[in-house]
Amino acid sequence: MLRKSAAYPLPTSSPTVDQVGVIERTSRFTARSIKKESKVQGLNMVLSMIDLTTLEGMDTEGKVKQLCYKAQHLHDAYPGLNSVAAVCVYPNYVALAKKELKGTTTGVASVATAFPSGNSSLKLKLEDVKMAVDSGADEVDMVISRGRFHQGDYAFVYDEIASVKTACGKARLKVILETGELGTLDKVRRASDIAIAAGADFIKTSTGKIQPAATMPVTLVMLEAIRDHYFKTGEMVGMKPAGGISKSKLALHYLIMVKETLGEAWLDPTWFRFGASSLANDVLMQIMKQATSNYQSADYFSID
């Protein structure tokens, strides 16, 4: 499951993408009607794929503790719910989160590499990673150097990812492309290919700090990069859209997109995550609506 650093050489070129065609394709996913048992099943899947996230300058121990509690107690009024896949925090809160989540299946993910801009030296970035890993992070979410990428210095971007990957050791690496800063879908595809070749375990759209964050067209292009890699090598890579997905209906359409682009093997928290903080409650409200057939009020679902 853990990929190798610099698993494949830097690709010399990437396939091109037509944005209008991509949007047409994604509009077919959103036209899928997900009803009844498939909806309930889908909503439960969504819950299990969420990385509950807090990445604020004003994060505190209290906030992180509350988040970790929420990860285990999504809605105690309705027992038997899945817990989320992971909580995602800054490196200095990894140890705390680890402690809070001890004995649970929920992992701890940490952003690193001078998140969110990535503008620092490789040395400092690697120390950042080391801090997260040494504190027990199960997953590391790095950012690519978008400036170097725009300069056309793809080798730099590739080498950096490979170095971070090595530094991650047993932690799985998510590579954030920050697609909102890449400018075109062709560049999203190029960055995806570079990250996959360099050894990313996951590719991830966004930091959540830049608009637009995850969109269906961007995610589709990244899924296609993953699919093409799988076609070529038989090796699976994970995907994490982050930011901007707050409604369960949209999340379900993302799952349709994953199913039709990659196949059902990816419908698993090992291979697909949502980076989101408010999505969980909307999913919970939908689950309760299905269970009680009453439309729900946000007042009945805890905010953390």
Binding site: R32, S33, I34, K35, K36, E37, S38, K39, Q41, G42, M45, Y230, M236, L255, K259, L262, G263, E264, A265, L267
Partner: peptide, 14 residues
Amino acid sequence: MKKTSEHWKLAPAP
């Protein structure tokens, strides 16, 4: 694609 069971099927939406 990796062979898996069809575990997420769309319910009829007539």
